[in-house]
Design a protein around this nucleic acid. Structure first.
Lengths: 256, 256
DNA sequence: ATTGAAGACATTGTTAACAATCCTGTCAAC
DNA sequence: GTTGACAGGATTGTTAACAATGTCTTCAAT
């Protein structure tokens, strides 16, 4: 599958003491689910738009879903909040974030700073196997589009960008990209035209071509334009699409 | 002081229920210390090099230091670990991170992707007050150097970079910059020549000049060269400066 | 019929006790 | 004297009970 073993290292430990007692079902289900796995799963559900902005993530439901204790869920939610993928409201619970227009601009500004560089580095460093993985991924994207698998198409579009960060071989930038791609899904869910897919895979195909010709500068340029293109197709002009600004609306009735 | 009110929003709540009971010491100490405050304090202590790599951060000590319960400390440590500023070893505790050569390269690669863009945006967007704050900051840097306040000089050098991110007005990039600057302090502590300061303030001064002439491209270029300069002055060639690779050392005695 | 209050219920936040693991110092054996 | 085992203490990890807050339903009053 091609994956770089990163993260998880700094929260090491978690030795399988359970794997020792070789009872029934020796192999399966002995695996403990770690916080990062939960975080990763929720990231992907957000990317899939299976968890739209504002969705409540109740602790008990998550405990049941992942089959873990409340403490672990709580830690996972804290990590998700620190990435601004969810919002933690005191005594009210966790909700999938609803990025504001300002936050949306910030996310894309950060992506424009990071991802063109990532694309350039990825082209410089990608191994032949990495490029093969990328081509396979592109094929899957096309297939999802052909067969109208909307959810798969969205997920694969996002994963294309994180895959680039993996090929660039930089764990820090990969982590940042995952966060930004996930938040982008929320942004597209709020400000995107309904029914439109976030990424044209034409652009993705062009980037893969840049890999084949090892043209790093070209990949960088395409990625920049690609991100610009995505942002341009958002409705970021509307001020506070939902949740009208009541304060501004009703202060000094004379001035409205 | 000029500060942008960001972060903390998404972990909102924490209403002062204690402030209600107006007993003695009505005003002070009613403030509860939040996780982010603890994280921020530890960030700064790491930047100051008061917490060198490998320092153990025991829960009980931190509880006493911050005057909070263990749960809050535990959450803070998790957040710090998710930023890779500390390492969490199961059943052993939290230790200030000791970045590897690979991680060091990754951090500076990320900074090179982010901070030149931040510098450009900051020049484009800085208000006159923001520029004044920047000039004051530069003065403080010079003062610290003149009076040989090494610790202050180091801290101010790092804060210059986060201040740039504040002037750029992008909360996402500000958060990333804080993380990267903090980790850079650890990296300089490990791989830097002893006694040398991490940033030349000549570069910082040149960047401030670019603000005055509103030359955003120049600021971007200087920042890029500045970061290159810092990285060049590190000993990243040595493999595992400390913690010798015993495995590689003692396998096949004939080959050593 | 709508509004407001009150109480039951559900969910989140905190604390404290307990369990598990690791570190350290002592002591016996060789 | 060095090495290994063992026990005690200290630290971390987990669980469960409890407290606090929010939410929802019911019901009465206007």
């Amino acid at each position: 599958m091609f994956s770089i073993p990163l993260e998880k290292a700094h929260i090491s430990g978690r030795q399988e003491n359970l794997a020792m007692k070789l009872e029934k079902t020796d192999i399966l289900s002995a695996e403990e689910i770690a916080e990062e796995d939960i975080v990763e799963r929720i990231f992907e559900a957000v990317i899939d738009q299976q968890l739209p902005p504002g969705t409540k993530l109740s602790e008990s439901a998550l405990c049941e879903a992942f089959g873990v204790g409340r403490m672990r869920i709580r830690r996972s939610l804290l990590l998700l909040a620190s990435r601004e993928v969810i919002e933690l409201h005191a005594n009210k619970g966790a909700y999938v974030a609803s990025p504001s227009v300002k936050q949306a601009r910030e996310v894309f500004e950060a992506r424009l700073a990071l991802e063109p560089t990532i694309a350039r580095l990825a082209v410089q460093r990608a191994t032949p196997e990495g490029i093969a993985t990328l081509k396979e991924h592109l094929e899957m994207e096309f297939a999802a589009h052909r067969t109208n698998q909307r959810r798969d198409a969205i997920r694969l579009s996002g994963q294309f960008h994180t895959l680039m960060a993996q090929l660039a071989g930089n764990a820090v930038m990969l982590r940042m990209t995952k966060e930004l791609v996930t938040r982008s899904s929320l942004i597209i869910g709020i400000f995107g035209a309904p029914g439109v897919t976030n990424c044209r895979d034409d652009d993705h195909a062009a980037i893969v071509d840049a890999f084949l010709s090892r043209d790093d500068k070209l990949a960088e340029t395409i990625m920049r334009e690609h991100l610009h293109h995505i942002e341009k197709h958002l409705d970021l002009e509307v001020q506070s699409k939902r949740s009208v600004d009541l304060v501004g609306l009703f202060r000094h009735p004379k001035n409205r």
